[in-house]
């Protein structure tokens, strides 16, 4: 039971992060390899707002809005220039951005391990969620938030006018533009949403476990989840994240705890060899990477 609870919590973390990879890839065909770094910056935004306003009900939403704006700005100031360049150039740009952000974070926040939960006065308590299975209260919040985020994303993409435009832009950007859709607006919006969801994950993790540059590693470990499911499928990201989390938790338990950082990437390699378009992805979508 405890194992199952651990799998669900880890799966929720990966899923909350990996939907950002999927959203950006699905709509703009760019793989954002700075997602881990941007998510870390989001968590540092919370550290900053928590230092100024020690109320979690204000500090967290403000940091969330700031991360939304940060995502949109990354597109408008940087990635926008990459429209029309090769996909490889765009991906390399995100890698460069990631390296830059690592340095900037050290300069402004130091490399020390810090706790945004301290100024906010939050203490994680232990909750019994299943008979014989206990998780921290913040992990429970994380699972609920992941469910809410996925629910709203599905509804948004299916039902709203902006979601419809996003799906259209993802299928054929040129035709979308010829049908009056402002691509830059759509891309800025999707970057904003993706970085927002990633940052929320970063904030919740750092409230629970503290904050330093190792958060980037969690961001990277969530990527195999997106790829296992298929890079252009949200449902795939959810299922893929659970698969990767299950493999990781079970191998740590029964084989060797040192495998923790290796397992997601072993799965990634296996997936790339046998079914590179993922479980739920579309085959042709991958040709464009």
């Amino acid at each position: 039971m405890q194992l199952l609870a651990n799998i669900i919590v880890l799966g929720a973390i990966y899923a909350l992060i990996s939907c950002g990879y999927v959203l950006i890839y699905r709509v703009s065909r760019v793989l954002n390899l700075a997602h881990g770094e941007l998510m870390m910056v989001g968590a540092y935004l919370l550290l900053t707002t928590a230092g100024m306003i020690p109320n979690p009900w204000i500090a967290i939403p403000v940091a969330g809005l700031l991360s939304l704006a940060m995502g949109a700005l990354v597109y408008l100031l940087l990635m926008r220039r990459m429209t029309g360049e090769s996909v490889l150039a765009a991906i390399l740009t995100t890698i460069a951005l990631g390296i830059l952000l690592r340095g900037v974070v050290v300069i402004f926040f130091s490399a020390a391990h810090q706790y945004p939960s301290v100024p906010l006065g939050l203490h994680a308590s232990s909750v019994e969620v299943l008979p014989g299975a206990r998780i921290s209260s913040l992990s429970l919040v994380l699972v609920v938030v992941t469910a809410l985020v996925y629910g709203s994303l599905f509804a948004f993409l299916r039902l709203s006018r902006w979601g419809l435009r996003m799906r259209a832009a993802g299928q054929n950007p040129l035709l979308a533009a010829q049908r009056g859709i402002n691509l830059h607006g759509i891309y800025a919006m999707v970057w904003g949403i993706a970085i927002f969801t990633g940052s929320i994950a970063g904030m919740l993790i750092s409230l629970d476990a503290g904050l330093d540059q190792t958060l980037i590693m969690i961001g990277l470990k969530a990527f195999p989840g997106a790829l296992v499911g298929g890079l252009d499928s949200l449902l795939g990201a959810l299922v893929g994240s659970l698969i990767v989390a299950a493999a990781e938790v079970l191998l740590i338990q029964y084989v060797n705890p040192l495998l923790a950082d290796v397992v997601p990437f072993l799965i990634l390699i296996a997936m790339l060899v046998f079914r590179p378009w993922g479980l739920f992805g579309t085959r042709e979508a991958l040709d464009r990477v």
């Binding site: 259209a168 035709l175 979308a176 010829q178």
Partner: peptide, 12 residues
């Protein structure tokens, strides 16, 4: 414009 190819969104 009504383009020559890829003139509709296939998954909509």
């Amino acid at each position: 414009l009504v383009p020559e190819r890829d003139k509709v969104f296939p998954n909509l």
